[in-house]
Amino acid sequence: MAGTSDVALLGPADVRSLAAELGIRPTKKLGQNFVHDPNTVRRVAGLAELSGEDVVLEVGPGLGSLTLGLLDTGASVVAVEVDSGLAGCLARTVAGRAGRHSDRLTVLCADALRLEAADLERPPTTLVANLPYNVAVPVVLHLLAAFPSVRRALVMVQAEVADRMVAGPGSRVYGVPSVKLAWFGTAQRAGAVPRSVFWPVPNVDSALVRFDRGEPPASGDRETTFALVDAAFAQRRKMLRAALAPWFGSAARAAESLVSAGIDPATRGERLTVADFARLAAQVRAADCDVSQ
């Protein structure tokens, strides 16, 4: 992009000027920390490995910093913004700074957590987002489930959230986000993001997480597997035979099902892979257990 680009990326002064023009004050409630560093935008767009064949689902475009960088790759972008004020000005910003690319931008004023395949004209291939820490995991999991066409993702999240998303079994931070994301594929850290590239400057560190879709576990089903994951980590210090006793009617019956799934009843949820949970989900279904615990 550098050198031959006709896209004018937003710098710190541009971001503040746009926000002032629109009367926008970043809010903690919406987790609004706008990226204002062109080099970071180029870095993210490059790591997303986009081409003209891609349709990018961008969540939380804000003032358009990253949107401009994504359009500069030749990809089409569907920008989903929950703030109506920001959504309303995005197309104008793109027209002024990346005019000939604006026909590849679609703006939706919507909540990403409610977005479904029918809301988009074309199935997205890639998810790219700068996500507030409090909704990052729910948004990513929802969109991966709602859009099977998304084969990869690159998201900016709080560093601690990134650690949870990429953690493996046995890790101190391995938990619900780690297991559920693993159902859809593999996640890995793609680098740190300094606080200084955001306005306002957040009081937490950020990181990039790269995701590549894979095949889900062969056994079990997602609804039951995810419910089991929630139950196991709700009482993560308990042995699984105790944590899952309500599902099976007793700790003894839970232990029997765990053994049948090839899992030590005395282990804890933090030691299980997503495939382990899926095998256990198959046992739950076979035993006709109540999954609404």
Rank of each mutant, 00 (worst) to 15 (best):
Q283F: 11
A20W: 11
L47G: 06
A95Y: 04
E215D: 13
T224K: 04
T73S: 14
A129K: 00
R236Y: 00
V179M: 05
R279C: 09
S219W: 08
R114G: 13
V173C: 02
P169F: 01
T225N: 02
L258I: 08
Y133F: 11
V229M: 06
A227V: 02
L47I: 13
R104L: 11
S206D: 02
T126D: 11
A162N: 07
A218P: 07
C89I: 15
T106R: 15
D205K: 07
A20V: 09
A167K: 08
L22N: 10
L86T: 01
S149L: 07
A182G: 01
L131A: 02
A266P: 08
T73L: 11
D54Q: 06
V137Q: 00
G249V: 08
S196W: 03
T186L: 10
D290K: 08
A118C: 11
S260F: 03
G69A: 08
T225G: 00
D6M: 14
Y174N: 02
D212L: 11
V78C: 15
D37Q: 05
T224F: 07
V193I: 12
R213W: 00
T4R: 13
T93K: 02
G170D: 01
F34Y: 13
V173D: 00
V209I: 10
A8Q: 14
T225L: 02
G46M: 13
L181K: 03
A79V: 13
V7C: 04
R222H: 05
G262C: 08
F277L: 09
S219D: 10
Q32Y: 09
K238H: 12
A182W: 01
P169C: 02
A266C: 14
A118S: 15
T73A: 12
V82N: 08
S102A: 15
L127T: 08
A162H: 03
A48S: 12
Q188S: 15
T273G: 02
R152Y: 10
G85L: 04
A20M: 11
Q235V: 10
L258D: 01
F184W: 05
L127R: 11
V291H: 14
P177V: 00
E270D: 15
D14V: 13
S5D: 09
R164S: 05
L141T: 06
V80F: 14
G60M: 02
N134T: 02
F184P: 00
A136N: 03
F147P: 06
G170E: 04
V274S: 00
V41W: 08
V157D: 01
A192L: 11
F277H: 07
T125K: 07
L105Y: 15
D37R: 10
G170S: 08
S65M: 09
E81M: 11
M1P: 12
S257C: 14
A190S: 12
P148Y: 05
G88R: 03
K28W: 10
H101S: 14
L68P: 04
A254P: 06
F233E: 01
F198K: 14
D212E: 14
L71Y: 12
Q235C: 09
V161N: 02
G96P: 01
A286G: 15
P61G: 05
T273A: 04
